[in-house]
Simulated scan of single mutants.
Amino acid sequence: MKISETHNVESIATPIRLQEYAFGIFKTVPTKSSLKKAIKKGLIKVNGKIATTALYISKGDTIELFQLEEKTQRKHFDFPLDVLFEDDYLAIIYKPAGMLVSGNSFATIDNALIQNLQKSNLPNATRPRPVHRLDYPTSGLLLIGKTTESIIVLNQLFEKKEIQKTYHAICIGKIEKKGEINFPIDDKEASTSFEVIETAESPRFDFLNLVKLHPKTGRKHQLRKHLFAIGNPILGDKEYFIENKALKGKGLFLHASTLEFTHPFTKETINITKELPKKFKKIFP
């Protein structure tokens, strides 16, 4: 095997598992799943020894990634992104609806980041990486890590629920003015609070509602499943809809509008909001 990339652990507060620390430090294994596969295949060594997923990393360790078989060089996707905040540690960008965050496709946000963000001047700078996901049809704010340490810390903030996310959606049908949806998803606890901002009568859908949403957990398709569960599916949803109430050709009316958190390194309060897309304003000017 031939060494593909090497990383020296220069700064780390406390020991952390390899599979958590190494996410984002290697260009050729950019996702958590590909990192886990590389570890299981014995392609990652720490201090010269083949590593396991349970291994803890400490300051001074040397991590080596060996060349993956038939791995082609990553190409960059030339696509302009709206950057709403950026410093040496992190960035917040706008993801348009109808675009993948990451994955095997070429046209992803992940592949476009390096073209749109400034290279960090910090010693542990790495390839910019999204630290959470938005569904393909969802528009809105996406948080990006620009250093090895920031990627780790931002992931931890999400796990501790210290990053507040606000969404806006247009849902159909008669709905309470505000409330909380506690409905398990994949047999796991899931909770969402909602508040109706505005309601309009609709010949086709009876009522259309502009709703503000605060997910308290982060399950897959949580907001879409929760609104569907109470009989108020999101307008344009192709997966969770009421028969004869589906809207086609306009996309999903779900938008990640605000990110709020304390910057883990500068300690400043970050509160970034992206206005609603034009298609929302056509219904609720």
Rank of each mutant, 00 (worst) to 15 (best):
D237T: 01
G249Y: 06
K225L: 08
K248A: 14
L223P: 06
K248E: 15
N244A: 08
H263Q: 13
H263R: 11
P233D: 07
F241A: 05
Y240N: 00
H263N: 13
K267V: 14
T258G: 10
H226K: 06
F228G: 10
H255M: 02
G236L: 07
G231L: 00
L235D: 04
L223F: 04
E239D: 15
K245W: 10
G218H: 03
F253M: 08
H221D: 04
F241G: 01
H255D: 01
A246F: 13
A256P: 03
K238R: 13
T262S: 13
L259A: 09
H255G: 02
H226L: 10
T262A: 12
K238M: 12
G231M: 00
E239V: 09
T217D: 13
A229T: 07
G251V: 00
L227M: 09
I234P: 08
F265P: 12
L247T: 09
R224H: 06
Q222T: 11
F261I: 09
F265N: 14
K238V: 10
G251Q: 04
Q222N: 10
E260N: 15
G236K: 04
A256H: 03
T258L: 09
G249C: 05
G236N: 06
N232E: 03
I234E: 12
K238E: 14
L259R: 09
G236T: 01
G218Q: 04
G231I: 00
D237P: 02
I242L: 15
L235W: 03
K267F: 15
I234A: 09
L259Q: 09
N232C: 08
I242A: 10
L235S: 05
N244Q: 13
P264E: 03
G231Y: 00
G236W: 03
I242T: 13
K225E: 04
E243T: 12
G251K: 05
F261T: 08
D237V: 01
F241V: 00
A229G: 10
H221C: 05
L252W: 00
L227Y: 02
F241M: 03
F265Y: 15
E239C: 10
K250T: 05
L227E: 02
L254I: 02
Q222M: 11
F228L: 11
D237M: 04
L247V: 10
T258A: 10
P233L: 01
F261A: 05
Y240I: 00
K250D: 08
F253A: 07
L227V: 02
G231D: 01
A246H: 14
I230W: 02
K225M: 09
Q222V: 11
E243W: 13
N232A: 07
L227N: 01
A229E: 11
F261M: 08
L259K: 08
L259H: 08
K220N: 12
K267C: 14
D237N: 06
G231Q: 01
L247M: 12
E239K: 11
T217N: 11
F241D: 04
L254P: 02
Y240E: 01
K245A: 10
G249L: 06
K248Q: 15
P264I: 00
F228I: 07
L235R: 01
